[in-house]
Design a protein around this nucleic acid. Structure first.
Length: 235
RNA sequence: GGGAUCCAU
C-alpha cells in the first residue's frame, strides 16, 4: 500500500488526478494515507466542493480519517473561508478526540482566522494544552490580518512571557499590524529587536512593512532611503 | 507513502 501511495503521489504530481482517483478506488484494501494523498492533491488543484465530496467518498468506503487527513481538509476550509464546513470538521476533530493535538489545533486556529471567526480562533487557541511558535503565529496572524492590532501586540508579549521565541513569521505579523495602525515608534523598536535581540535577518517582507509604515506616516525620504539601502533585493 | 503559521502558487 506504500507503493500504491507513491503511485498516487506520482500521478497527482503529473496533474493526472482522475488516474490517481481511479487507482485509489481500485485498491483492494482502502487506506487513509493513500486517500489523504489524493485529498491533498485535490485541495491544491480543485474547488472546495470536490474536496469535501472526496472526503465523504472516503468515509463511504469505510475509511476513517486521521489527523493528517483532517488537517488537509481544514486547510481547504481556511483557504476558501468555508466556515460551515470548517465547523463540521471541528466537530469531527472532537469526535476523534484530537482537540488537544498541537498541529490539528493550529490548523483550527488558522481556519477560524481565515474565515473571519476570530472569537472561535481565540477560544480554540485558549483551550490548547500545548503551543509552539507556529501556534502563536497562527493566532497573532489571525488578529493582525483582521486589524486587531492591540490584540496582536498583546499576544506577542504573552508569547515571549510564555518563553516562546518569536521567529521571522511572528515579526512579519507584528510589523504588518504596526503598519496597518501606523505605529511608527513601536514598529521601529520591534524591527530593531528582531535584528538585535533575536538575530533574525529581515527579509524583503519585513522591509516592505517598514517601508510602508514609514511612508504612511509621511516620512517619504526615509522610506525611499530604506528601499535603496535594503540588504536584499526590493520587489 | 500524506502534516499546521508567513511568503509563493
Amino acid at each position: 500500500t506504500a507503493v500504491r501511495t507513491a503511485l498516487v503521489t506520482f500521478y497527482t504530481k503529473c496533474s493526472l488526478l482522475a488516474e490517481a482517483h481511479r487507482i485509489v478506488l481500485e485498491a483492494s484494501k482502502q487506506d487513509v494515507v493513500t486517500w489523504s494523498c489524493l485529498i491533498k492533491a485535490y485541495a491544491e488543484h480543485k474547488p472546495a466542493e470536490q474536496v469535501f465530496y472526496l472526503f465523504g467518498q472516503m468515509e463511504g468506503e469505510g475509511v476513517m480519517p486521521d489527523r493528517v487527513c483532517v488537517i488537509s481538509v481544514l486547510d481547504v476550509c481556511a483557504y476558501h473561508a468555508a466556515l460551515a464546513e470548517g465547523k463540521q470538521m471541528h466537530y469531527r476533530v472532537m469526535d476523534m478526540c484530537l482537540e488537544r493535538d498541537l498541529i490539528v489545533g493550529t490548523a483550527l486556529v488558522t481556519m477560524y482566522g481565515k474565515c473571519g471567526s476570530l472569537k472561535d480562533a481565540q477560544i480554540t487557541f485558549d483551550r490548547m494544552p500545548e503551543r509552539n511558535a507556529v501556534t502563536w503565529n497562527a493566532i497573532i496572524g489571525a488578529h493582525s490580518q483582521h486589524g486587531h492590532v492591540k490584540q496582536s501586540l498583546y499576544l506577542f508579549q504573552q508569547m515571549q512571557q510564555k518563553c516562546c521565541t518569536p521567529d521571522g513569521t511572528t515579526y512579519h505579523h507584528i510589523l504588518s499590524a504596526c503598519r496597518y495602525a501606523g505605529l511608527l515608534d513601536e514598529g521601529r523598536q520591534i524591527f530593531l529587536s528582531m535584528c538585535q535581540v533575536h538575530n533574525i535577518k529581515p527579509t524583503v517582507d519585513h522591509f516592505n512593512c517598514m517601508v510602508d509604515l514609514v511612508a504612511r506616516v509621511g516620512l517619504l525620504d526615509e522610506s525611499e532611503g530604506m528601499i535603496k539601502s535594503m540588504p536584499c533585493n526590493p520587489n
